[in-house]
Design a binder for these strands. Sequence first.
DNA 1: CAGAATCCGTGGGGATACTG
DNA 2: CAGTATCCCCACGGATTCTG
Lengths: 138, 138
Amino acid sequence: MSQGNTAVPTQLRTLDDARALLEMGECPVPPREILDRIAGKWAIQIIVASAEGPIRFTELERLIQGISRRMLTLTLRNLERDGMLTRTVYPTVPPKVEYQATPMALELYEAMLTLTDWSRRHSACVAKSRELYDARRQ
Amino acid sequence: MSQGNTAVPTQLRTLDDARALLEMGECPVPPREILDRIAGKWAIQIIVASAEGPIRFTELERLIQGISRRMLTLTLRNLERDGMLTRTVYPTVPPKVEYQATPMALELYEAMLTLTDWSRRHSACVAKSRELYDARRQ
DNA sequence: CAGAATCCGTGGGGATACTG
DNA sequence: CAGTATCCCCACGGATTCTG
């Protein structure tokens, strides 16, 4: 009984730990404010695009297909606020602004590779499952 | 020229690969239909709760704090459709329905532990960064 | 018990036009 | 070039009520 059953595991490594947290009313997943970043439609792509060196606003707009100017601006601001991007303004005419991913952001991207692999390995299975489910319900 | 420069890397392991994909107009992140699952507010918690054995609807409702009946039902349906949960109905009165996570779902959860670790290691840094950013803009 | 149905608010995100 | 400013749509999710 040296470890009471109310102890919250500080390292979340197993499903047992996770379930223990759940039963204590805590959430065994990354907090909302983090998930919301990676869940956003564009953030990860911006991190990738700015990973290897400074990149300008218009280059991002060209590189990331389908992004609107508004969402590019918004996502850049959020990422900068979170410390995931540096923003450098050159006071020239016309203006020049460069963005670059921080090491922290690159780590996040690497962490997401695990998820990418999962989806690669299971996407066919998920698709098949959906097909069967939909067929059953017509 | 055995490998033309239009080859898409089948294994996405490095940022170089990711950026190459980006430049080809492809998205180097898990597809939307996968991210939407983990981005949902409740899916992961349901997977955790149903990981260790069958669990009933009402037990889930009690275990997962703050979930509404509607969202529990909806998320369960989606997870079942994706092959992440099995659903077993016992034709008794009153009805009894049990859910259990599939191995594929457990793998997904384990993949997410990488993200959980990232957020654990960097959440303080992100919070500080936001504070500074907000202070600068008042 | 395990849901289905309905109503509704909020916010993410698109399209477009304007500007320092 | 690198943004703001508006308007608008719609999907997520909460609250509530009804039912086999």
